[in-house]
Design a protein around this nucleic acid. Structure first.
Length: 626
DNA sequence: CACTCCTTAT
C-alpha cells in the first residue's frame, strides 16, 4: 500500500506538464466545430486555473463571438468573468456584435472599452467605423474619424480605407475623396472603394477621374471601373475600357470575365460573350460557381438555350445558383416542362432546391401556362422543403392565374396572402387585366400601382393602354397629363441586333444609322410583303394611344422592326436573327414579327424586358401571352 | 489570436 504514496519518477519533459496540456488544449480548441465541443475545452481550461487568462479566454471568446456555430451570449458571459480583458478580447466582442448586425451594441462596447482605459489598436477602429457605416450613424462616424487621428492611426491603411467606405455610404463624397487624397500610401482597396462607391451613386465621371489618376492600375482597378459602367448600363463604355485594358496587356481574371459577361448579357451581345467564354477556357481562369452562373445566364439571355444547357451539363460541380439560373433560363424561353424536369433532376442528384429555385420554377409554369403544375409546386415547396412562400412566389402565382384568365382567383390570392402585396404582385395582376381586358379591376389596380411607383413610366403606359382598349380617350389623356405633370419620362425604346460580332442599336424612328435609308426601304418592303400575307397595321386609335415606344414616330418604325430589317439586309437567307430590346414587344411588332418569320422563312428570336419570343413559321413561342 | 476593395443570378 505504501508504494501508492510514492511518486514514480518520470523523465523530465522539456515543457512543464501544465504548459504542455494547455498547448494541446488550445490546439484542440482551434479544431472544434460546435459549441458543446468548445464547452468541454473551456471546462478543462478552467480546471487548469486559467479562467482569468486573457490568452486562453481570448481564444474561447473568439470562437463563440465570431464563428457561425458560436454563441455571442456565451462569449459575453466569459468576458464578464475576466478581471482585465485585453484589446484583442474587446475587438473580438466588437466584431461579434458587428457580425450579428448588433451595430449600436458594437459601438457601445467600444466606448465601454475606452472607459475601462483599454487602448484601441489598429484592429479596433476599422471595426467601429464599419459599425457606424452599416448603422448610418453619421455623428458617431465623424467622432470615430477623430479617434483614428487621436489614437495615432492616421496612417493606417485599414482605418483609412474603412473611412472611405463609410463616407461613401453616407453620400459624403467630398469627404471620402479627401480621406483618399490625404492617404500616405493608397492601395487598390482605397481606389476601388471610391470608384465603386461613386458609381453606385451614379457619379461615373467622378469615378473615372479617380480611376484615371491611378498610375499603376491593377486588374482590380480595371474591373472596378468596368463594372461601374456595366452597373450604370453604359455597356459601350465598358467595352471601350475593356479594349483599352487589353491593349495595355492586362490579363483577364475571373472578376473581369464576369463583369464583361454581364455586359454582354444585358446587351444581348452573343459573339462577344462567347469570346469571353473562350478566354476563360483558354487561360484556365478559375471557373467558380459564380462565373459558371454568369456564363449560363449569358447564353440564356442571348437566346442560346442549347448552349446554356450544354455548358450547364458539362459543369463538374453545379452550384445551386447554376441550377437556379438554368431553370430561370428555361422559364424565360417558355419551356415550363423542361424546367420541371430540371427540378426533378436536381432532386435526384440530391441538391436541395431553395427559395429562388421555386421562384424560377413558378415563373416557368406561369410563362408556359402550366396552371395545375404551378399550383402543385406552390404547395410542394413548403411540404417537401419547408420553404414558406414569399412575395415573389405569390407574384408568380398571381401571374399564373391571371394569365390563364382566372382573375377572381388571382385577386383572392392577393387579398388572402399573409403579407401586403407589393408592386410586383399587383403589377402581375394588372398585367393580367391588360391581357384579358378587364377594365374595372385594371383601373383599381393600375392606380394603386402607379402610386406605389410614381416614377415608373411602364405602369402609366399599361393603364393608359387599358383605357385605350376601352375607348376611354379622355382617361388616356389624363394619364398622359399626369405623367407630364410629374415629369415622368418614358424610357426610350431601343433594340439591339448583333451580327458578326458587331452590335447595332436602333431607336424608334431613329435615322442616325449610316445605312438608315436602306434600312427604311427594307422596312417598307417587309411590311408590303406581310400585308399580302394578311398583316393589318394595328392602327386603331393610334392617335390617342400611348405606346411603350415613342408615339411621335409612326408605328411602322419601332426599333424592333428597324432591327429586323437590318438583320434581313445583312445576313444570308435562313440565318437566325437575335434581337434584344429594353421594353416589351408591342402588339403590332409581335404580329408583324410572326408574319415576317413565315414570309421570309427566318427564325427570329426577340428578347424583351420580360421574356423571349421565338418567332418561327408564323407562330410565337409565347403563344401570344406576354 | 484578426480587419477593408472589384464578379453572377432570382
Amino acid at each position: 500500500m505504501a508504494s501508492i504514496l510514492h511518486v514514480i519518477p518520470t523523465p523530465q519533459s522539456p515543457a512543464s506538464p501544465k504548459t504542455k496540456t494547455l498547448g494541446t488544449l488550445l490546439r484542440g480548441l482551434a479544431s472544434c466545430s460546435t459549441m458543446s465541443e468548445l464547452k468541454q475545452f473551456h471546462a478543462q481550461i478552467i480546471k487548469l486555473g486559467l479562467s482569468c487568462d486573457n490568452d486562453a479566454m481570448g481564444r474561447v471568446i473568439k470562437f463563440c463571438a465570431t464563428l457561425e456555430s458560436g454563441d455571442l451570449n456565451y462569449a459575453l458571459q466569459v468576458f464578464d468573468k475576466l478581471p482585465n480583458p485585453d484589446t484583442f478580447i474587446y475587438n473580438t466582442i466588437i466584431r461579434g456584435y458587428l457580425q450579428s448586425q448588433l451595430l449600436k451594441e458594437s459601438v457601445l462596447f467600444y466606448s465601454q472599452m475606452l472607459e475601462c482605459s483599454v487602448s484601441p489598436n489598429n484592429f479596433t477602429l476599422p471595426l467601429v467605423i464599419r459599425a457606424c457605416c452599416m448603422d448610418n450613424a453619421v455623428e458617431e462616424g465623424k467622432q470615430i474619424h477623430g479617434h483614428v487621428i487621436k489614437f495615432g492611426f492616421g496612417f493606417d491603411k485599414f482605418s483609412q480605407n474603412n473611412l472611405i467606405h463609410m463616407y461613401v455610404n453616407f453620400h459624403f463624397l467630398e469627404e471620402a475623396k479627401r480621406v483618399l487624397d490625404n492617404m500616405y500610401e493608397k492601395d487598390d482597396v482605397s481606389w476601388t472603394t471610391l470608384i465603386s462607391g461613386f458609381a453606385q451613386l451614379g457619379y461615373l465621371a467622378e469615378a473615372f477621374r479617380v480611376f484615371d489618376s491611378i498610375s499603376e492600375k491593377s486588374s482590380v482597378c480595371w474591373n472596378a471601373m468596368i463594372s461601374a459602367y456595366v452597373h450604370n448600363n453604359q455597356f459601350h463604355q465598358a467595352f471601350a475600357l475593356f479594349e483599352r485594358m487589353m491593349s495595355e496587356d492586362v490579363v483577364i481574371d475571373k472578376f473581369i470575365a464576369a463583369s464583361m459577361l454581364s455586359a454582354c448579357t444585358r446587351l444581348g451581345a452573343l459573339k462577344q460573350g462567347e469570346w469571353i467564354v473562350e478566354q476563360v477556357e483558354k487561360s484556365r481562369i478559375d471557373l467558380d460557381s459564380k462565373l459558371a452562373t454568369t456564363i449560363i445566364d449569358m447564353y440564356c439571355k442571348c437566346g442560346c438555350l442549347d448552349k446554356a444547357l450544354q455548358f450547364f451539363k458539362g459543369l463538374r460541380r453545379k452550384g445551386i445558383s447554376s441550377w437556379n439560373c438554368m431553370i430561370g433560363g428555361l422559364a424565360m424561353h417558355g419551356k415550363g416542362e423542361a424546367a420541371i424536369e430540371l427540378l426533378k433532376e436536381m432532386e435526384s442528384e440530391r441538391v436541395a432546391p431553395d427559395y429562388i429555385t421555386f421562384v424560377n420554377l413558378l415563373s416557368a409554369c406561369a410563362h408556359s401556362g402550366l396552371i395545375e403544375e404551378g399550383k402543385h409546386y406552390f404547395h410542394y415547396m413548403k411540404e417537401a422543403y419547408g420553404i414558406e412562400p414569399g412575395m415573389e412566389h405569390y407574384g408568380c402565382l398571381v401571374d399564373l392565374l391571371g394569365r390563364a384568365g382566372l382573375l377572381e382567383e388571382a385577386r383572392n390570392i392577393v387579398k388572402e396572402m399573409p403579407m401586403n402585396a407589393d408592386v410586383g404582385v399587383l403589377g402581375a395582376l394588372l398585367g393580367a387585366c391588360r391581357i384579358h381586358k378587364n377594365i374595372e379591376l385594371g383601373e383599381i389596380i393600375g392606380k394603386q400601382v402607379i402610386e406605389l411607383e410614381p416614377q415608373n413610366s411602364g405602369r402609366y403606359v399599361l393603364l393608359a393602354n387599358l383605357y385605350a382598349y376601352a375607348g376611354r380617350w379622355e382617361d388616356v389623356a389624363n394619364i398622359r397629363k399626369l405623367m407630364n405633370d410629374r415629369g415622368v419620362k418614358k424610357a426610350p425604346g431601343f433594340s439591339v441586333v448583333e451580327l458578326e460580332g458587331v452590335v447595332s442599336e436602333f431607336t424608334a424612328g431613329g435615322r442616325t444609322h449610316p445605312q438608315a435609308k436602306e434600312i427604311y426601304a427594307k422596312v417598307n418592303e417587309m411590311l408590303d410583303c406581310i400585308k399580302s400575307a394578311g398583316y393589318v397595321p394595328d392602327s386603331d386609335g393610334l392617335q390617342q394611344d400611348i405606346d411603350e415606344e415613342e408615339r411621335e414616330n409612326p408605328l411602322y418604325y419601332h426599333s424592333e422592326k428597324l432591327a429586323i430589317a437590318f438583320g434581313l439586309l445583312k445576313t444570308k437567307p435562313g440565318a437566325v436573327l437575335r434581337i434584344t430590346k429594353n421594353l416589351r414587344v408591342c402588339k403590332d411588332c409581335h404580329q408583324a414579327s410572326k408574319l415576317i418569320s413565315k414570309v421570309y422563312d427566318r427564325e427570329i428570336i426577340v428578347r424583351d424586358r420580360n421574356r423571349f419570343h421565338h418567332f418561327k413559321d408564323g407562330e410565337c413561342s409565347c403563344k401570344d401571352y406576354w
